[in-house]
Amino acid sequence: KKVIATKVLGTVKWFNVRNGYGFINRNDTKEDVFVHQTAIKKNNPRKYLRSVGDGETVEFDVVEGEKGAEAANVTGPGGVPVQGSKYAADR
């Protein structure tokens, strides 16, 4: 997939743990970017499923997906693991 931007910061608008996807609002352009659970590179080690939490600040790359921009290599700011959704089960 073609990389559009790297190391972008954004805020998770919403993320559905059961369906495994959601949207991140970019801090720079204010665009909403699709995020799939497979794009989460550093999950919270205490969580079973990969997820990001609503309102969480994340860092990610933006790539060209089939339906427009989507997030890739999602981590917390500075490459730390994401916090994850409060609806995702703990280990």
Results as ranks from 00 to 15, higher is better:
Val63Phe: 10
Asn27Leu: 13
Gly10Ile: 00
Gly68Asp: 03
Phe34His: 02
Phe34Lys: 02
Ser85Arg: 08
Glu31Lys: 11
Lys67Phe: 06
Arg91Val: 09
Val52Leu: 12
Gly20His: 15
Pro81Asn: 12
Val17His: 09
Val3Ala: 06
Thr75Leu: 03
Pro77Ile: 11
Lys47Ser: 08
Asp54Gly: 15
Glu64Ser: 12
Ile4Trp: 06
Ala89Lys: 14
Gly55Ser: 09
Ala5Pro: 05
Asn73Ser: 11
Ser51Asn: 05
Asn73Arg: 09
Ala88Cys: 08
His36Met: 03
Tyr21Ser: 02
Ala39Tyr: 05
Asp28Trp: 00
Glu56Asn: 03
Phe60Ser: 01
Tyr48Glu: 13
Val17Pro: 09
Asp28Arg: 01
Val17Tyr: 06
Ala5Arg: 14
Trp14Gly: 02
Val12Leu: 03
Thr38Asn: 09
Val3Arg: 06
Asn27Ser: 14
Val33Ala: 02
Gln37Ser: 12
Thr57Trp: 13
Gly10Met: 00
Pro77Arg: 12
Asp32Gln: 05
Gly22Ile: 00
Ser51Tyr: 06
Gly78Gln: 13
Thr6Asn: 14
Phe23His: 02
Asp32Val: 05
Phe34Leu: 03
Gly78Tyr: 14
Ile4His: 07
Tyr87Arg: 11
Val33Ile: 14
Lys7Trp: 02
Trp14Ala: 02
Arg18Glu: 04
Val74Gln: 00
Ile40Trp: 04
Gly68Gln: 04
Thr38Arg: 12
Thr75Pro: 00
Gly76Cys: 06
Asn43Ala: 11
Asn19Phe: 15
Gly65Ser: 13
Ile40Leu: 07
Ile24Pro: 00
Gly22Phe: 01
His36Ser: 05
Gly84His: 05
Val80Leu: 12
Pro45His: 15
Lys67His: 09
Phe23Ala: 02
Lys7Phe: 04
Val80Ser: 15
Lys42Leu: 14
Gly68Val: 03
Glu70Trp: 14
Gly65Ala: 10
Asn16Lys: 03
Ser51Gly: 08
Gln83Phe: 10
Gly68Ala: 06
Val17Glu: 07
Asp32Ala: 07
Thr29Ala: 03
Asn43Pro: 11
Ile4Val: 10
Ala71His: 00
Pro81His: 10
Gly20Thr: 02
Lys2His: 06
Ala71Glu: 00
Lys67Val: 09
Lys86Gly: 10
Arg46Cys: 12
Gln83Thr: 12
Lys42Asn: 10
Arg46Tyr: 15
